[in-house]
Design a protein around this nucleic acid. Structure first.
Lengths: 327, 327
DNA sequence: TTGAAAGCGCTAACAG
DNA sequence: CTGTTAGCGCTTTCAA
């Protein structure tokens, strides 16, 4: 494998000159430049990026941590991938399964200079720890975030999105509106529950504790909690779900209980992942701009790495997508 | 950020000795070892892996190329991730969207020494090109592969899997069996179509060209082609789909055409991705051992990088999962 | 058992 | 415009 020295010899110049050509330093004569390029072509030379990175004290790698590589993250990853490569960075994607130990270990890649910074979608590590890490390396939060931790983040406005979804139910005549949420402490979960309650209150509807269920993000959780909800003496006629998988479970449970969706019960998901349109009936849901979320996270990373220290908070627009699971 | 030199000074030894401690070279006295470790702890030192890699002429990165980060690949990626990290490698995951130009560009990361080898799930580049690349770097194929290209690969036995799925239809009384396949030239597609035809023939059923449709891997494609199939004068009573998303589209089209699944038409998917169980009715499908496929691909990579040159071909067991979309 | 010193391949002052 | 040179942080002979 040829090195810059081989190229220099072949072209009859110094390695410095080859380096200049490699990096388009404007101060190389046409003629020399041509010779160097010819040598590069002849030897089929490719610079060793590892040594360049060592010299430049960077790795050109962004660590991307997410809980799992499910459908939801696919779109975000696409956004990250495109924007990061444009900027000359390689996204190193890794699923942490929400395991703090594993996350902490990955975080060591920053100290090892194997990555220049991290885009994090799993707020599992304590806020303090992340803030401390952010003192030394760029840490960007995507989708989820800590309030007042001094970290830049991008997400949708979960509160407004959910408020609108609940209001949609009210507007279409529902008075018994349930919610299948999650037990986690994510900011998105807290805001969504808060918006759900506020929307009820603002519309003169009572908050019924038995209508608010909390489980996981899974199909199974949606199924179980919907079962409970639908067997209440006065079951809700509309159910807001914390994500599309939960909504899928909700629909399955309704059908299992011989109820029609949306005639007997309306179901609304969240996220608009691929399966939303595939379900029977197709799922009404709150769409998140996945690719833009990813691309924006990279943008924040780039700003941060080029010197900016003050955290920036970005909220991207969502969209209520009405399909056939609501009436 | 402290370097090995700082540690050496702090411990009053040479950098060579620190390096030895770092790498557990057996020839360091207890006492020295203790001092070095104390210094490392005191300075909160982490080795710069970039320079280690430069020196050792490796990157400890495996490039993982896949067409898209959809549900199907999620399981495989999990398998790759776990096994690769165990072995001290970082998987660099990247979606190529089946774009040869993009793939070729990514492949340059090997020349740039940014990755030590590649696990490829998108057989987009010409067989020759991959074989040539494999001369210089480890190239492992996962799920899809070229025959006789001298590359190691792991996948299921697509022929047998499909043969069994088709036979299942025959066994449950179907005589009009259709297939919604794909236009791509993947080995899996070719083998599945071949098995479909052979199963018909072996069971004395005629092959009807109008029963074999070819589209893409998408929900939309499944929907469209199912529509055509179901509006035939003599529509099939069972449809084998190239993947679960296509099967989902197939079910949607059937219901749209006021047909019941599985009473009027049975639908079988392929892969057993997450959505299979979420659909209404839940989807019967051929399950692939996703995590094992990923882990095995890494295994092949490790074998190859530690010197083995003869290609090895591995076929992992599949499983026919019968749910409610078939009778 | 330990240290000195030579690189790994590249970039960036600095001189000329 | 170009070359010389000194590293980036680490590992690894080679001697001692």
């Amino acid at each position: 494998m040829p090195t810059i020295i081989d190229v220099a010899q072949e072209a009859g110049v110094s390695t410095a000159t080859v380096s200049r050509v490699l990096n388009n330093s404007r101060s190389v004569s046409e003629e020399t430049c041509r010779r160097v390029k010819a040598a590069i072509a002849k030897l089929d030379y490719t610079p060793n990026m590892g040594s360049r990175n060592l010299r430049r004290k960077e790795s050109r790698v962004i660590l991307v941590m997410l809980p799992d590589i499910g459908t939801f993250y696919g779109g975000i990853l696409a956004g990250i991938d495109i924007r990061a490569r444009q900027a000359g960075y390689n996204p190193l994607i890794t699923a942490t399964n929400r395991n703090p130990v594993h996350e902490r270990e990955l975080t060591r890649m920053l100290d090892q200079r194997l990555a220049d910074g991290v885009i994090c979608m799993t707020p599992t590590l304590p806020s303090r720890e992340m803030a401390a890490l952010n003192e030394r390396f760029p840490v960007i939060q995507c989708c989820e975030y800590y309030e007042n931790a001094g970290l830049s983040h991008v997400s949708i406005d979960n509160y407004t999105a959910t408020y609108q979804a609940a209001s949609y139910f009210v507007r279409t005549g529902h008075t018994r509106i349930g919610m299948i949420s999650s037990t986690n402490a994510y900011i998105s979960t807290r805001l969504r529950e808060k918006a759900y309650r506020q929307a009820l209150e603002d519309n003169g509807l009572p908050f019924r504790p038995e209508y608010l269920r909390q489980g996981t993000y899974s199909f199974e959780s949606g199924y179980e909690h919907a079962q409970v909800l639908l067997h209440l003496d006065e079951p809700p006629t509309a159910i807001l779900c914390i994500c599309d998988s939960v909504a899928a479970g909700c629909i399955s449970a309704a059908i299992r209980a011989s109820m029609r969706v949306p005639e007997d019960v309306s179901v609304m998901g969240f996220d608009n992942i691929n399966i939303a349109k595939m379900l029977q009936p197709s799922l009404s849901t709150v769409a998140q701009p996945l690719r833009r979320l990813g691309a924006t996270a990279v943008e924040l990373f780039l700003e941060r790495i080029s010197g900016r220290r003050e955290p920036v908070e970005i909220f991207l627009p969502h969209e209520l997508v009405i399909r056939n699971s609501t009436r």
